[in-house]
Computed example of a mutant assay.
Amino acid sequence: MKLNILLCDAFTGVLPSFIESYQSMFYTLFDSVSKDMEYQVYDVQKGQIPKEIRTDELYLIPGSRAGAYEDTLWIKELINFIRKAHEVRAKLIGVCFGHQVIAQALGGVVEKSDKGWGTGIRTSQIVLPEAKKFFPDGFMNMHYNHHDQVMELPKEATLFASSDFCPNEGFIIGNHILTFQGHPEYTKDYGRHVIQYRAEDEPQAVKEEALKSIETLSAMGENAARWMISLI
C-alpha cells in the first residue's frame, strides 16, 4: 500500500533531536498498523505535486504553520490538486492543516478561532455511526496543536466528530476523503515538546492544562491510522 505524503512544512528548527523528520512520525504510525506500507514524500512548499493521481494509493496532507486561507502560490497549487483528486475520487487524507485546506478547497470556511490555542490531548464525541467501527467507545482522543479551525464544512462533507472547543473535529466525503483536526502522528514526547518549548507566547494556564491532558489521556492515533488505510 502506497502512502503519498504531501509535505506542507518540514518544521525546521522546531523538531526535537529525537524526531528524525516530521514525515518520520507518520512512518512510525502507519508501520504500527500495517506491515505493507510504501512511502513517497512531495515537498509542496517547493512546488512538488504528484503529476499523476492514482485511485489505488493514499494521499495525505499533514500539518503546517501556514493558514489554509493564505494567498500563496504553493497553497493555490495544493488546492488545485485537492479539487482534481476529489473529481477522480482519489483517497485523500487531511491532518490538522490538511483537514483545513481540504475543507477550504471544497467550499468550506477556515478562520483563526477566538477560542485560542488548541493543544494537548482533547476528547471529542463521535457523531457518525460508521466512525464507531474505529472508535467503538463513541469518543476520540487526539493530540492537537492549532489556532485555526474549520468554521463551515463543505456542503458535501459529513461530520464524524465534534467537541465544544472545535465543533468540526473531522469529516468524510463519500468513501474517499477523511480528515482529522487532530494529529494522530504525535507521540506523548513530541506533544510535551510542542507545549513546553515551542509556545513561548501562550498562556501558562493553557500549557499546564495541556500537559495534564497528555499525562492522563491516551491518544487514539492508531485508530485513526486504521481508518485511513481502510480507504483503499
Rank of each mutant, 00 (worst) to 15 (best):
M1R: 11
N4M: 06
F11G: 00
V14R: 11
P16C: 10
Q23N: 12
S24K: 11
S24Y: 08
F26R: 13
S34N: 10
E38I: 13
E38S: 15
E38Y: 09
Q40Y: 10
V41H: 04
Y42D: 12
G47H: 09
Q48F: 08
P50A: 12
I53P: 00
E57L: 05
E57F: 00
L58K: 02
L60K: 09
P62M: 02
G63W: 00
G67L: 03
A68W: 03
Y69G: 00
Y69F: 15
D71V: 10
T72F: 02
W74E: 04
I75F: 04
K76E: 13
R83T: 13
H86D: 15
A90R: 01
A90W: 07
A90F: 05
K91V: 03
L92M: 07
I93M: 06
I93S: 04
G98A: 05
Q100D: 01
Q104V: 01
L106K: 01
G108M: 04
G108F: 01
G116R: 10
G118A: 13
T119M: 14
R122I: 14
R122S: 13
Q125D: 14
I126C: 11
I126A: 04
P129V: 01
A131P: 00
K133Y: 12
K133T: 14
F134H: 09
P136V: 10
F139H: 09
M142K: 02
H146K: 10
H146A: 09
D148R: 05
Q149L: 06
V150G: 07
M151P: 00
L153T: 05
K155P: 08
T158F: 04
S163N: 04
D164C: 08
C166E: 12
N168G: 04
F171S: 02
F171V: 09
F171Q: 00
F171N: 02
I173Q: 05
G174H: 09
N175D: 15
H176D: 06
F180L: 03
Q181W: 11
H183F: 11
Y186T: 03
T187A: 03
D189T: 08
G191N: 07
H193C: 01
V194R: 10
I195K: 00
Y197M: 07
E200Y: 11
D201P: 01
E202Q: 14
K207I: 12
A210R: 02
A210N: 03
A210E: 00
K212Q: 15
S213F: 07
S213W: 07
E215P: 11
T216S: 14
T216K: 14
M220H: 12
G221E: 06
E222K: 15
N223Y: 06
N223F: 05
A224P: 10
W227N: 11
I229R: 06
S230T: 08
I232F: 13
